[in-house]
Computed example of a mutant assay.
Amino acid sequence: MLHDRVLVRISPEDGERRSSGGIVIPATAQMAKRLAWGDVLGVGTGVRHVKVGDRVLFNPEDQLEVEVQAQTYLVMRERDVHAVAKELTDHGTGLYL
């Protein structure tokens, strides 16, 4: 990757989801715009706040897709990342933004 670009693979759990009442909502259901979680697989030399292996929150509709060895990835600028998830293991468990 070059400059401030980030290569992301969308997390597989972003497909089908369940409501709090247990109703299955298919991935094709149209709702309001949703942000997606993804795993960072590569970063450019100008990226400062994201590293390989991080989970990031972003808008998948505004990104460019690229296919490498039959896998689809997204390429975005670092500024298009809304949040980076960190897992704190010192005193508790869970995912923190």
Rank of each mutant, 00 (worst) to 15 (best):
M1G: 09
M1R: 07
L2F: 14
H3F: 13
H3L: 07
H3I: 03
D4Y: 08
V8M: 11
V8R: 13
R9I: 00
E13A: 12
D14N: 13
G22I: 15
P26K: 10
P26Y: 00
P26H: 09
P26R: 11
A27T: 02
A27D: 06
T28Q: 13
T28D: 14
M31Q: 12
A32K: 05
K33I: 09
L35F: 04
W37Q: 11
W37V: 15
G38V: 04
D39E: 09
D39Q: 12
G46F: 01
H49N: 08
G53Q: 08
D54F: 00
R55F: 04
N59E: 00
D62V: 01
D62W: 02
D62K: 05
Q63A: 11
L64G: 01
E67D: 06
V68S: 09
Q69M: 02
Q71G: 03
T72Y: 08
Y73M: 02
L74Y: 03
E78V: 11
R79G: 08
D80E: 07
V81Q: 07
H82L: 05
A85W: 14
K86S: 15
L88S: 06
L88I: 05
L88Q: 05
T89R: 15
D90I: 12
H91M: 09
G92C: 10
T93K: 03
G94S: 11
L95G: 06
L95S: 09
L95E: 08
Y96D: 04
L97M: 13
L97Y: 15
